[in-house]
Design a protein around this nucleic acid. Sequence first.
DNA 1: GCTCTCGTACGATACTCATCGTACTACGAG
DNA 2: CTCGTAGTACGATGAGTATCGTACGAGAGC
Lengths: 137, 137
Amino acid sequence: MAIEEVPRRRADAVTETAATGRALTHPDRADIRLESVLHALSDPMRLQIVRELAAKEAELTCSQFDLPVTKSTTTHHFRVLRESGVVRQVYRGTAKMNGLRRDDLDSLFPGLLDSLLAAADRQAARLGDTGRTPVGG
Amino acid sequence: MAIEEVPRRRADAVTETAATGRALTHPDRADIRLESVLHALSDPMRLQIVRELAAKEAELTCSQFDLPVTKSTTTHHFRVLRESGVVRQVYRGTAKMNGLRRDDLDSLFPGLLDSLLAAADRQAARLGDTGRTPVGG
DNA sequence: GCTCTCGTACGATACTCATCGTACTACGAG
DNA sequence: CTCGTAGTACGATGAGTATCGTACGAGAGC
């Protein structure tokens, strides 16, 4: 992976920790790779997260998602989404806000995100899965 | 996986083997899952295969692809594409013809395949990758 | 200060998967 | 029947990853 770990010192420095939060590593727009995005979205858990994010059109904290996994696993999935360039994460107090990177994604791959979301909605409706408006959205 | 292996008898029966070939297991249209499709397409090798298939608009044999892997691996990738519902494979003599399942994909997820292909083309053009017409094909 | 909550980091584990090599089957041509 | 070509099957292997538990860090409220 080309993503370098931020050397975060512990119990030692609050360097990055401003009022709005610590720094999180995001790939630059030009570094977002289609394969990584598809891989991120090929996990049912992560696809669900992205669908909810798109449905709400707003930033959500990690804990607002009702995922059937532990906190550790949730962190893992959000990290994958962030490192693949699908979501942007910002600290806000103790909470971490998650937002879709629509601008970047639409700029790189016009129409892709909407097609993906529509496909996910369609499939959910077809399989009786909930998570968003059933049809005609 | 819900895909059952065909119990293929060896050196015994030519049952399925008609002039046009042996039977290959394909998922029914209703069984194609978005996550599986995305997973299949998240591999650079397989994405490349699909792009060539789409570009040629025709059925191609496995050996017509110039992939930097062995025959075994090639077989593996085509199997993943077939079992995820992305391609349809038909035997024709010793050759195996591969074709995109556009009808099924477009029916299940309208516009998705085109967006995906366009996104792949865009990225290839951006990164200087070859494999298809650079722009304005 | 203490404590509660939100989220991270690390290690472990089990599973998936991309890759290979070798042995094999299936078909077509001589 | 023999040979060559296209592709499969199986086993191995090394890398990736989804999951967990536990210990920890950062901010908010007392």
